[in-house]
Lab assay of single mutants.
Amino acid sequence: MQIFVKTLTGKTITLEVEPSDTIENVKAKIQDKEGIPPDQQRLIFAGKQLEDGRTLSDYNIQKESTLHLVLR
Rank of each mutant, 00 (worst) to 15 (best):
L56Y: 00
F45H: 09
K63I: 14
L8E: 15
G10L: 09
H68R: 06
D52E: 03
T14I: 08
I36R: 06
G47H: 10
E51I: 14
P37W: 13
Q41P: 02
E24S: 04
K48C: 02
Y59D: 02
E18A: 11
H68F: 04
T14K: 04
L69F: 12
K29F: 09
K33T: 11
D21T: 09
I30G: 01
L67G: 02
Q41W: 15
R72I: 15
K33M: 12
V17R: 00
S20E: 07
G10W: 07
A28K: 02
T22H: 07
A28Y: 10
D21N: 10
Y59N: 06
T14A: 13
L71F: 07
D52Q: 02
K29N: 09
R54W: 07
D32V: 12
T12R: 04
D32Y: 12
Q62P: 10
I3E: 00
E51W: 02
V5L: 02
I30H: 00
K33C: 02
E18Y: 12
T12G: 10
I13P: 00
E16K: 09
E24P: 09
T7W: 07
T66W: 14
E64W: 05
H68V: 05
I13G: 01
Q40V: 08
K11S: 06
V17I: 12
T7E: 09
L56E: 00
L56N: 01
A28H: 14
L8D: 15
T14F: 07
D52N: 05
R72N: 15
L56F: 03
S57H: 10
P38D: 15
S20A: 11
I44F: 13
N25A: 12
T66D: 07
D32S: 06
A28N: 11
V26M: 11
V5M: 05
K48E: 12
G53I: 07
T12P: 08
L67F: 04
L67H: 01
L43F: 05
D52R: 04
N60F: 11
T55D: 06
I3S: 00
E51Y: 12
E18R: 10
K27T: 11
T9N: 09
T22I: 11
P38I: 12
P19E: 05
G35E: 07
S65K: 04
T66S: 06
H68N: 10
T22V: 12
M1P: 01
N25G: 12
T55Y: 10
P38K: 10
L69P: 00
K27R: 09
D52A: 06
P37K: 08
K11E: 13
L43E: 00
S57P: 09
E24W: 05
L15T: 01
E24V: 09
I23N: 01
T66P: 05
P19S: 14
L69S: 02
N60H: 13
I3P: 00
L69K: 00
V5P: 00
R72K: 08
I36S: 13
S57I: 08
Q41R: 03
S57A: 15
G47E: 14
Q62N: 09
G10E: 12
I13N: 03
K11G: 11
L8K: 15
T9D: 09
L8T: 11
E64H: 05
Y59P: 00
T12W: 13
V5I: 11
G35P: 03
I3R: 00
G35K: 12
I61D: 00
Q62W: 14
D21E: 06
T9G: 11
P38E: 15
I13A: 03
K11L: 07
D32I: 13
G47R: 04
A46Q: 06
L15R: 00
R54K: 02
D58L: 08
L43C: 01
L71P: 14
D39H: 07
K63L: 09
T7R: 02
E34H: 03
G47A: 15
F45I: 12
L50S: 01
T7S: 13
K27Q: 11
I30T: 03
K33F: 13
T7H: 15
D58M: 06
G53W: 09
A28T: 15
T12H: 05
M1I: 07
I23H: 03
E18S: 14
I13W: 12
L50K: 00
M1W: 04
S20V: 09
E24I: 05
N25F: 09
L15N: 00
A46N: 07
T55G: 06
R42S: 15
T66E: 14
L50G: 01
I44S: 11
V26E: 00
Q41V: 11
I44Y: 13
L71Y: 06
E51T: 05
P19M: 05
I61E: 01
D58H: 07
F45Q: 15
R72L: 06
S65C: 02
R54A: 10
I30Q: 00
H68L: 07
L8C: 02
V70I: 08
T14S: 07
L43V: 06
V70N: 05
K27H: 06
T22Q: 10
K29G: 08
D32P: 11
K6R: 13
K6Y: 11
T14G: 03
D39R: 14
T55F: 04
T7P: 08
D52F: 12
G47T: 10
E51N: 10
I36W: 13
G53Y: 12
P19I: 09
I13R: 03
Q40F: 11
V5G: 01
R54Q: 10
K29A: 09
I36E: 03
K29E: 15
K63S: 15
T7G: 05
L69E: 01
K27W: 08
V17T: 08
G53P: 07
I36D: 10
E34D: 08
E18V: 03
V26K: 00
Q49H: 03
E24A: 12
S65N: 14
D52T: 03
S65F: 05
L56K: 00
T12A: 14
T22M: 09
Q40H: 07
I3N: 00
S57W: 10
R54Y: 10
L67I: 03
V17C: 02
T9Q: 09
F45P: 00
R54N: 13
I44L: 05
E24N: 09
D32Q: 06
F45V: 06
N60A: 09
G10T: 14
L67E: 01
D39Y: 11
K48N: 13
